[in-house]
Amino acid sequence: MSGSGKRPLAPKNREPFGPAAPLPTMVDLDCIRAAQRGDLIAMSDLMDALLPWVGRICGSIALDAGPDAAQETLIQVMRDLRNLRDPASLRSWVRRIATREAIRHATRRRREPPIDDPDRLREAGDPASADLPSAGTPFGARHASDHPDLRHDIAVVLGALSADQRAILVLRDLEGLSESEAAKELDVARGTIKSRLHRAREAFRQRWPA
C-alpha cells in the first residue's frame, strides 16, 4: 500500500480500526470488584490493563498534554472506582473520564505554540521537518507496518485539528462509537456530532490525502 495509488478507504460495514479495542481478558469482573474493595494488587492489575487504552485515547486527543491527561484520568478512576455501581460499565465510564480530561488538557495546552507543526518547523528551518506531511502536500497512503514514523506523522496531522475534532475522530473512527453514543460522551447534540465529525474528517484528509 505504501506510496502507490489511492489509499484504500474502509469498505462499508468494516470497522475502520478493527474491533473496538477490548479490555484485556485479565480484567474480569472479579478483578474489578477486588479493586473496588481496595485490593492493591487488583488495583495495580486493573491499571496495567487500562494503561495502553487510556494512553491511546489521551495521546490521540491531548497529544503533547497526553501524559498529564492520562495521569489525571487514572487518578480519578482509582479515586472513584469504589463508587462505580456496575463493574460491567467500567469501559464506558473510563472512556468518558479519559475523553474529558484529554480535551481539558489539550485546550489548556493550546495556548502554547504546537512544537510539532511541520509548517512552523519548516519556517524555522528545522531539517527534521523535511519529511513531515504538510497541509496540501500529499505523500500517499502509508501504514504503521511499513513506516515506523507513521504514528508521529499522524500526531502531526492531528495537531492541526482542534481538540474537539480529535475527540470525535477518536470516539467514532478509533473507538467505534455510534453517533448517539459519541454525543452522550461529549455532552453535545447529535446534529453537532454529525457536523463536527464531517469537518474533522475533512480537515484530516486535507492534510492526509489519498
Binding site: 494512553g55 490521540s60 487514572l74 507513521l150 500526531a155
Partner: peptide
C-alpha cells in the same frame, strides 16, 4: 478515517 490499526498516538505512564 482509516490509517491502519495501532497507529494513533499513544502516551505511556
Amino acid at each position: 478515517i482509516d490509517v491502519g490499526s495501532g497507529t494513533w498516538p499513544v502516551v505511556e505512564i
